[in-house]
Design a protein around this nucleic acid. Sequence first.
DNA 1: AACTTTAGCAACCGCAATTCT
DNA 2: AAGAATTGCGGTTGCTAAAGT
Length: 270
Amino acid sequence: MNSNSKGNMNMYECESELRRGPWTLEEDNLLIQYVSSHGEGRWNSLSKFAGLKRTGKSCRLRWLNYLKPDIKRGNLTPHEQLLILELHSKWGNRWSKIAQHLPGRTDNEIKNYWRTRVQKQARQLKVDSNSKKFLEAIRTFWMPRLMEKMEQNSPPMSPPSSSSAVPSSPAISQLAPPDSLCLNPVKNSDSNNILLEQISSPSMNLTAVKNQPEIPIEESYYNVGFPSCYNDMQGQEIFLPDCHVAEIDWFGEDLYSTFWNTDELWQFRK
DNA sequence: AACTTTAGCAACCGCAATTCT
DNA sequence: AAGAATTGCGGTTGCTAAAGT
């Protein structure tokens, strides 16, 4: 469909000479220079005065999603994945709201993550990604595993020296399984090494609280409560499930193709 | 090796909300 | 107050590279 070679005008250009499609290095530089000297905002006039043949909308998007200095690159950490799963369960497709809790990540990136990674799992399970069944599968299999991996890779806690010290977190795998959610262990591979490479958040601040009484989440998108609690990257409390960790190879080579053993999840489709 | 399919992601679109004139 | 301009959001598209056949 690339029509760059077709005549003088390709599909990304129109009569008014507005450019569309991928940004060039020159365009990026123009935008960066202009924003650094004039600041963000007034995107339509910005594009005009910066000499960019782009719509203001396009400039804004390019800046916010790609050029802004504090944009994070690379894979989402388990902590970030966990936050996305949790916050999506509360707010649904409120991508920008979710992104506010993940500094450096854009709503577009989170949306893409959800569509390409999470919804894929739902498709494989043949369940609706917005269904309670799918949410329960996430809650039972995926989130506890992410929490466990976060714990395994978080730096050792120093002994509490003051009353404001963060409480040490229990091993999630030691938490008592809910009666209906205990699973048979599945062989674990050497996939932890892969995960270790993915964890890059030194600010990870997991403070899972064992035996915390169940606290309902206001405005819960699925109306499902998460009893345990930890802090997001801005210190805000987030509640998570207190449930058993199945020994599923969540982080193997096929991390992004199959998060769980479909056979074991069959129960969620019943 | 060539072709097809899939995954990931950047960018676009339409619409709604907000701000400006 | 009203219309225009701008900004923000969520859904969707299409390109590219990787994986599969």
